[in-house]
Write a protein that binds this DNA or RNA. Structure first.
Lengths: 214, 214
DNA sequence: AGGATTTATATAGCTTGGCTATGTATTATG
DNA sequence: CATAATACATAGCCAAGCTATATAAATCCT
């Protein structure tokens, strides 16, 4: 049993086929994400944390921006926001420049809740990594950096990069939860404490949302 | 804007705090998983691919084993299996040793469907990685290997590893979809072609399911 | 100015994955 | 054998996603 799972670390010396590396990487990334999601007994949905993290990381945002950031539809984000409001974790503030918009702001309670939750996830995950050597940790560290960059852009974008199977239009697979865990747990280090300028410009802010669209 | 997001690649030379590395890693892993999940226009649910991948990777399995493998409840797996059956991607075979059991076997069509889908995902992802240097790719490769191992075990397990927040009992967060993409896309390389011994022993096979339980 | 258009959210309604609780057949036990 | 434990399947419920649509406000274009 367990066939294709000896994921090639055995071949790591020679540069393997990109496809193979990618396969391993995606597999492990997925697995890690699932484990992270499972590691807390929080009854809150991943979507909650994902959204709080976005607000914490990028500062106050409008509903639409949040939706793109989290790769969910606008109606879905509206739902999530309602939940966050009920818990007192975000506050709606009026956008002086546009009466249609709703700017969401993380509340102190929200920030605390996020910090607690994140701490829980990371603590649960830490034991798995403690046995690693310094060298291995450095490798993971570097990889994390490389990945973070790759993953924060809208796509291939490279010069000769063919636009194969570009991210379609909008919604796609359901691609629901799990995730949340990862998202919120990430973002570099701890829960930010400084305030951020609200992204007042409407959709032009889509650029900041990065890969949110295609 | 974009505060805590300059995920530390800038500090990669010095060994950073484990928590920080983990945060970045989880964040990126999650992001990658989401992108992978979004990268195909397949209308099939992630759960479908996740399950097909499990069968392809570990060979014929019973419903219960599949459930544990995929970290879903048995009833949920029953549902998924029904879908797979409708599409003709798996076949039920009787287990000679236990009339209660249902052993699921990947059909040729199922294998093909999985291969196609996986190819699509990886192809969609490839452009993002093509601009990387050989060194960077090697780093990712090594990291994938390290991660694959960490992520395939049931937990910290290390000698001095405290059992902090171990995976609780059974179901936890919903941790639904997204995932599927990753799972199926992973598993080392291509779609396996050899047959695998069906895990005839009932639940003792849980060991093979690895971290499925706590 | 003033109507037509576009944009930002919110709501409604549906689908789907997941879960718990249960039922049924089968194997294991005492 | 009768009882307990297992392996699945079903039923019923909930949550998160999505599309379609409604509403209000900002923009555009005569």
């Amino acid at each position: 049993m367990y066939y294709g799972l000896m994921s090639s670390s055995d071949l790591s010396t020679s540069r393997r086929d990109l496809h193979a590396i990618l396969g391993d990487l995606v597999f492990s990334a997925h697995r890690l994400t699932r484990i992270a999601a499972h590691s807390t007994s929080s009854t809150e949905s991943p979507a909650i944390w994902r959204t709080l993290d976005a607000l914490n990381t990028s500062g106050p945002m409008r509903t639409g921006e949040l939706a793109r950031h989290g790769r969910v539809s606008q109606p879905t984000m509206s739902k999530i926001i309602r939940l966050l409001e009920q818990r007192g974790w975000v506050a709606r503030v009026a956008d002086p420049t546009d009466a249609r918009a709703t700017v969401l702001e993380l509340s102190v309670e929200g920030r605390d809740a996020l910090a607690n939750w994140r701490e829980t996830v990371l603590t649960a995950l830490t034991p798995r990594f403690e046995a690693l050597s310094d060298e291995q940790l450095n490798t993971l560290d570097s990889a994390a950096g490389i990945l973070a960059e790759l993953v924060s852009t809208s796509g291939p974008v490279g010069p000769g990069a063919p636009e194969v199977a570009e991210l379609p239009e909008e919604g796609e697979l359901d691609e629901s939860a799990t995730s949340g865990a990862a998202d919120a747990a990430g973002s570099g280090s701890a829960v930010q404490d400084r305030e951020a300028e609200p992204a007042t410009d409407s959709d032009s802010a889509a650029s900041a949302a990065g890969e949110a669209r295609a």
